[in-house]
Simulated assay, not measured.
Amino acid sequence: MTLKVMTVYGTRPEAIKVAPVVKALEACPDFESTTVVTGQHREMLDQVNAIFGIVPDHDLDVFAHGQTLNSIMAKVFDRLDPVLVQERPDAVVVQGDTSTVAAASIAAFYRQIPVVHIEAGLRSGDISSPFPEEANRKLTSQVTALHLAPTSTSRDNLVREDIDAATIAVTGNTVIDALLHTVEQQIPFTDARLAEAERSGRSVMLVTTHRRENWGGAMEGVGRALKALAQRYPEQLLVLPAHRNPIVREAVLPYLMGLGNVVVTEPLAYGEFTRLMAASKIVLTDSGGVQEEAPSLGKPVLVMRENTERPEAVDAGTVRLIGTDEQRIVDEVSRLMDDDSHYASMANAVNPYGDGRAAERSVAAMRQLFGLGERIADFA
C-alpha cells in the first residue's frame, strides 16, 4: 500500500525548494504525492510550478494585496483544514520559514498528521530578525516529526534545542538540486536589455532587496548606495529585479531614476533569474535563498543584513555580511570591484550547501520514517 504525502507551499522560494522533493516523491513507488499551494505568492509561484511540471492538486488562493501576516495565517488555517480532512495524508511536508509553513505545520499537528520540515534548523539567534521567519522556523520545529536539515550546522542547532537527533537527517539544501536542474535548461531572457548585456559580455551586478526589517530608512540608504555605485562604476551594469511591494519600490527606485547603467525589471521568472545570477559578477542581496544559490555558481555574495541564519557560506568565505549602512555597502562592493585577489578569494570558495542529492536523501529519510527502508548517508 502506498502512503499519501501532502506537500504544502505558498511562495516562490518554497516552490523552488520543494520542487525536487515533489518530483522525487512522484518517482517513488512507496508514496502518492499530493500538492497544495496556498498562493501566498501568486504569479511567481505559478512560474516555478511550470518549470518543474508540477500541477497542484489544491489551490487555497490566499493572496490579497496589503494583507497582514495574521490574515495570511488565518486564511491558511481556515482553507487548509478541509483539505486535510478530505485527503487524509499520512504526512505533510513543508519547507522553510514562511507564514504558510507555520500555519500548515500547526494545522497538520492539530490533525495528528506527522510533519516533515525541509530546510529545518536554520537559526539567526534573534527572534526578531529575520522577521517573522525566525519565529516561524522555531514554531515549526516544535511540531515536526522529521527534520530535514540542510547542513550539519542546522542539525546542531536543533540538537541544542533538545530535538531528538534520531529525527534529524542532514540532506544538503534542495535549492542546489533545483538550481542545477534549471541552469541546465538554458531558459532565455525575455527582457531585451538583459539579453543584450549577456551577448555583449558586460559586467553585471545583480541586486535584490525586500526584507521587511530593512523597510524605511535602511532601504532608502540602500537606494542611495546603489546610486553611488552606479556613478562610480559607469561600465558596470546594475540590474535590480524590483520586488512588487510598493514600500520597497518607493524606498529604492527614486534614487535610480535617470541612471543609464541601471536596469530595473519586474521580478524575473526563476529560470531567467538563475541565468542572470550565472551571468553576474557580483550579487548584492538581502535574500535568504540567494545566499545559497549564487555560491554554487561561483559568485561572491554581499548580504545586506545584520545577521544570517545561513552562516556556513560566511564561514567558507563566499558570502560576506555587510549590513545596510550606506557607506559600507559602497565600500564593500568597491573592494570586490577593485581588488582582484579579494574577488578571487570569494568567487573560488567552496559552496557548503549541497551536492544535488538533497531530494534523494529527503525521500529516503521519509521512507525510514514509515519503516519502508533506510536512510542514505548524510550530506557532509
Rank of each mutant, 00 (worst) to 15 (best):
V83R: 06
V62W: 00
L80K: 09
A19W: 08
N70R: 08
L60S: 01
L45W: 03
H58I: 01
H58D: 09
A74S: 11
I72R: 02
D61G: 03
M73A: 15
E43M: 12
V37W: 12
V76E: 05
V85Y: 09
V22M: 07
N70E: 12
G39E: 09
D30W: 14
V76R: 01
P56E: 07
F52A: 05
Q86H: 09
P20G: 08
Q47I: 04
D59W: 05
D30H: 15
D61W: 01
S71F: 01
V83T: 03
V76H: 02
V62C: 04
V85Q: 14
V85K: 12
R42G: 07
C28D: 15
A50T: 13
V37K: 12
T68C: 09
E43P: 10
P20R: 11
G66S: 01
L84P: 07
I51W: 04
A27G: 02
F77I: 06
V21R: 10
G66W: 00
L60E: 04
D81K: 13
F31S: 06
V36E: 12
G66I: 02
D30P: 09
A19D: 11
D61S: 12
V83W: 00
Q86A: 15
D59V: 08
P82T: 06
V22R: 10
V21T: 13
A24M: 10
N49L: 14
D30L: 13
F31G: 08
D59E: 14
F63G: 00
E43I: 04
V55K: 15
D46Y: 12
P20A: 09
F77C: 08
K17P: 03
D57Q: 09
P89E: 04
F77R: 03
I54P: 05
R42C: 02
H65L: 05
N49S: 14
L25C: 05
P56D: 05
